[in-house]
Nucleic acid binder design. Structure first.
Lengths: 202, 202, 202, 202
DNA sequence: AGATAAGCGAGACGGTACGTCTGGTCTTGTT
DNA sequence: AACAAGACCAGACGTACCGTCTCGCTTATCT
């Protein structure tokens, strides 16, 4: 059917054992040595795997890390399919942004997250996958909660939920990326408050 | 005072000609081939310079690019020491954010800017220099304008200008980095309006 | 048994094709540019081979050249396992020394031979291999012929064959190395005659 | 008179102090690190001299070493303008060859001597200077003594003194260069005896 | 059950770039 | 003008990884 030039590997025969070992090794190594110094050879060696086994299934080290990070995220967010909705929008958003802050500050996520973000900035293809697999699932939850708040009349009806969402997460991301100032719960609270009520005086 | 193990080079004998050629070559090449494929060897070759002349004066390709980009920025922003202040805060901010949008969309800046951002995410040292040399000078202008608006009573007195600033630039940066949606003047306007007035309904 | 710090490469997987290409390239290049200007990079480039493939199998350019020259010698001296023995010692020795003279004068051997000799003078390790692989096999033939001559009573019984041998080859080598005077068949003959009969008058 | 393209330096202004320091440094370093690792930069640094001062007066590191070694030799052989002539040729030759053996075995001479020999093998230009400045003065003494022996009827009249000389020194050089066997007084004696009387039995 | 063939660990291969070292030239004061 | 100092262009060094390519070996299907 698809007589591709390089005959694609038969996924049904794939070694789950090797797949896991590679993803684990990638996460470990990116935490130990950083993304720049992360090499396919090192991943293969740590995973006890031939290099070809990596090249067979992934196009780049970024792709490996993306899969590894997605697996990590799926474990973490196993049940959380929805944001809390207590009726108090401000409280709910604070809760969630605080959670995001904690996640960004967690060393477990930090290295891999930064690696993927860095790669995404510079590599549109990786960026698309990153947004689709990692970011969107998280942001969708925000968007739903905001939409409900809009229906409930707590948010102006003319506002694009996408934009609203970016007003909330953008500042957090900004501070996380550039490390200008520490990323705290207080900051998250301030962002929620200001964003909801606006900067203007009267 | 000078406890350096490898005696530092004598900056007074430095070849200005080579310095310029290196910075220019770096900018050209990062635009042509992207940051990942940018190599010190290629920069040296393009600049007609020995590799050692680069290694003598810069610790990494990121540092070269940082200098190159800083030089670029200094040319561009030669006279602009202050943001416009027409008294109409919203209009002023829209004007400036639109300018920032144009800059981020300009192909001349894009490649180098992305490269430095990517490196900064992953490399705290480069990040610090990037923020200090490139980002701060720009943000300081925003901060001054916001402070004046605060004095004039257009912005609530209890707001931290730094945070206010991040509310404005964070969303732009977010969209630029992740390429989720196009970065337009309309978006800049919306960010200004919403940030000033808040999302909340009444 | 194998306490090597860097695990040794698997010789059974070695590419014969590359090995030959490297040896050939080394001989060509040493002839063209001389030993001093011979570089590993140039050998690799000429042979169409990665540098690492050379470094994997040889410790230095001298070692490459040694192998190359040994291969050359083995081709040339394929069948010659013994010196001629016509019964006339003087005639036999003249024949062989003339052959040696021709070899030393041949441009095909000259460059590589000189390179190895030069390296050997200065580098005991290379010297040992050079003597063992290249020189000994040749000298052994002389030694055998001289031993037989001794048994036949043509040479004094108290003479060390090793020393006798050096009396014959030493002068040739001397003149070849230092290029003081041309190395001719006549000279070879004179050395044989004088060495056999002595300088002393009566 | 000689409007050479690169105006030749004015030798009358040359710094004797620097010249000596360079020659001394060269000898020291060749003894410490060997010829291969001897670099112009290291000589300049050790001598407390600018690199250009070396390049101004010598064409290559071999030339420096040649001068250094010549200076060394001239000190050593200050008075010895002639070989001993006791009338007993064999005894005289043994004495001289033993002296040569001692010199070749002396660590002070060894490194530099080997370096120059190695360079000479591979570099005809250096070779010519080496022979002319270092070797000839020594060999001339042998040649004179042999000529006198010939006049006195102790050596056959039809023998070329040059060849005779090479019969004596060739074997020593051979053994020294290739380190096949130790270079001893006994060996020197044997070479003299055999060379004078010949290998042939009756 | 034996043959066939794919994925696998291993690692040699042709390459590219690294960051360092040295060669030989040029430049800038100093003596 | 020679000198000490050392920056400069050039390019080889030996190393580290890249992504591709065989090798046997182990499995898993398919005759």
């Amino acid at each position: 059917m698809t007589p591709s030039p390089k005959t694609a590997p038969d996924a049904s025969r794939r070694s789950e054992r090797s797949r896991r070992a590679i993803l684990d090794a990638a996460l470990e190594l990116v935490g130990e040595t950083g993304y720049q110094r992360l090499t396919i050879e090192a991943i293969a060696a740590r995973a006890g795997v031939g290099k070809q086994t990596i090249y067979r299934w992934w196009p780049s080290k970024a792709a490996v890390l993306l899969d590894a990070f997605a697996a990590l995220g799926e474990e973490a967010a196993a049940g959380e399919t929805e944001l809390p909705d207590t009726g108090d929008l401000e409280a709910d958003l604070k809760l969630v942004l605080r959670t995001t802050v904690d996640e960004l500050n967690s060393p477990r996520f930090d290295a891999a997250y930064r690696a993927l973000a860095a790669e995404s900035i510079v590599n549109p293809e990786v960026c698309a996958h990153f947004v689709e697999r990692i970011l969107e699932p998280q942001l969708r939850l925000y968007a739903q909660r905001l939409a409900r708040a809009q229906q409930a009349g707590h948010i102006r009806p003319d506002i694009d939920p996408r934009t609203a969402l970016e007003l909330l997460t953008g500042p957090l991301t900004h501070r996380w990326l550039l490390r200008t100032l520490p990323l705290t719960h207080e900051y998250a609270d301030a962002v929620v408050e200001l964003t909801l009520r606006g900067l203007a005086h009267g």
